[in-house]
Every structure is written in structure tokens, then in C-alpha cells.
């Protein structure tokens, strides 16, 4: 049933090498010297040189917008999802399948389809709230719903919320105290994982921003790549590195979960 050592390393070696080609290729691309050939670090250094970095202004503005979007998305997602999930767990367990279905639904509806229907809604939103970038985050909450739901639900299943709530309530705590001082601290791993995965999704989002004519990191990179393909590739490499580190942190957060009996 288990593969032999040779088989294992042949498969992993070939697939690994093929997957390394674009990464190594991108690094080589950014180091490629101009007409005279050879290797150069100039394009990486230009990133930190205020004079040269002026060409990247759109990217930094896009990055700024994306950071605002990350913040609003995470706050709205947590404010919306956590109380509802706790409520369903405590009072309406029979609604859990519906909740799960709704939260996982965005996986089945392509973003390109949603954006067709979001366009008229955003015309209305722009009239009501102005054309600030943050309104886009309201749609992003739907995109991160499946991932956030799974992260929080996994944590919720591992904690005996009912007993914790009864203990807290019988000791005289109100619902607010119970939620903020008893339930949420027990869910912190799930909440952190949900927030981190939302960061990754929002920073990589392109479809909504592009077709609703907003500027975020990805749309600004596409604009810059037309004049400066090297800069675009440098930012791509940095983004990959960031995502890799983020995922390792998420993995640590998940793995650190100790089996917890009702305390």
C-alpha cells in the first residue's frame, strides 16, 4: 500500500522540479541584466530607492486600498459570523445544515457570475455611501465566508460552548459578558485562522475590483505590469513569500489546538 522509497522520490522529484521552474524562472527574470546581459540586482534595489520607486506609486496605492479592504472585511466578517454561529450552536442546532449550506454556497457561484449582479447593487451603494474603496469589502465578506466558516466551525466543534455558557450564566454573567469573556476567548484560534485566511483571499482578489472599476493591489499590479513587467514579477514573488509565511502561521495556529475538555 505504501510506495517504495524510489517510487516516492521519483514522483515527488519530477513534480517538484516542474513546479520549481516558474518560481526559479521568475527570480532569474528579475535578475536578468539588460542588453549587456549578466545578472543584476538593480530592479530589486529600485524598490527601496525613493527616486526609482516612483513608478510603483500605483502599486502602493493599490496595496493601501487592499489593506483597508482587509481590515473592513475581517471586522464585518467576524461581527456577522461569530454571533450568528454561536447563536445557531446554542439555540438553533437544527439550523446548522442550512447555515453550512449558505456559508459554503459562494464556492459554487463563480465570482464572475456574482459580479454581474453586484454591478447594479454597487451603483446604488455608491450613491448612498460615496465611491470609497471600503464598500467593496462588503462583497468580499461573501467571498471569504466559506473559508472563515470552516475555520470557526472547527473550533466551535472542539469547545463545549453549552456547558461554558450555562456555567457563566448561572454565575450571574449577562449575555454580553458571556460572549466576550467566556466564549470568544475559547474561540480565539478559530477566529485568528478565519482572519488570516481572509487576509490571503482579499489580498489576492481581482475579479470584483476589476469589473466594478475599483483599484486594489491586483488591479494596480496589472496596470503596472504593462510598462514594467519586472516590477510586477518582483511583487508577485514577494506576495508568494508572504502567502507562504501566512500559511505556515495558520498551520501553527491550527496545530497548536490542544484537546480541551470542559474546564
Amino acid at each position: 500500500m505504501t510506495p517504495s522509497r524510489t517510487t516516492r522520490w521519483i514522483i515527488l522529484g519530477i513534480v517538484g522540479a516542474l513546479f520549481a521552474i516558474p518560481i526559479v524562472g521568475m527570480i532569474a527574470f528579475t535578475l536578468r541584466g539588460g542588453l549587456e546581459g549578466g545578472l543584476t540586482l538593480d530592479r530589486w534595489l529600485a524598490l527601496f530607492d525613493p527616486e526609482e520607486a516612483r513608478g510603483y506609486t500605483p502599486v502602493f496605492r493599490g496595496l493601501g486600498n487592499s489593506l483597508i479592504l482587509v481590515l473592513v472585511t475581517v471586522v464585518v466578517m467576524l461581527a456577522l459570523l461569530v454571533p450568528t454561529m454561536v447563536l445557531v450552536r446554542l439555540r438553533f442546532p437544527q439550523l446548522r445544515p442550512i447555515m453550512e449550506f449558505v456559508c459554503l454556497l459562494p464556492i459554487s457561484i463563480p465570482a464572475i457570475v456574482l459580479v454581474v449582479g453586484l454591478a447594479p447593487i454597487y451603483q446604488g451603494l455608491s450613491r448612498a455611501f460615496g465611491s470609497g474603496i471600503w464598500t467593496l469589502a462588503l462583497a468580499y465578506v461573501v467571498l471569504v465566508l466559506p473559508f472563515s466558516y470552516r475555520a470557526i466551525q472547527a473550533n466551535l466543534d472542539a469547545v463545549d460552548v453549552t456547558t461554558l455558557t450555562e456555567a457563566s450564566r448561572s454565575l450571574g454573567a449577562g449575555w454580553t459578558t458571556t460572549l466576550f469573556r467566556v466564549i470568544l476567548p475559547n474561540l480565539r484560534r478559530g477566529l485568528l485562522a478565519a482572519a488570516l485566511i481572509s487576509v490571503a483571499v482579499v489580498l489576492g482578489e481581482f475579479t470584483f475590483a476589476s469589473l466594478l472599476s475599483r483599484v486594489n493591489l491586483q488591479t494596480s499590479l496589472l496596470v503596472v505590469s504593462k510598462q514594467d513587467p519586472y516590477g510586477a514579477v518582483i511583487f508577485t514573488l514577494l506576495a508568494l513569500l508572504f502567502a507562504f509565511l501566512l500559511l505556515i502561521v495558520i498551520g501553527r495556529v491550527g496545530a497548536g489546538r490542544t484537546p480541551r475538555k470542559a474546564s
Partner: peptide, 11 residues
């Protein structure tokens, strides 16, 4: 996404 396209254009 977009970045994947950059990668393959570069390579």
C-alpha cells in the same frame, strides 16, 4: 489570478 499570469509571461 493575475500574478500567475505574470509568472508564466516571465518564464
Amino acid at each position: 489570478g493575475v500574478m500567475l499570469a505574470f509568472a508564466f509571461i516571465a518564464v
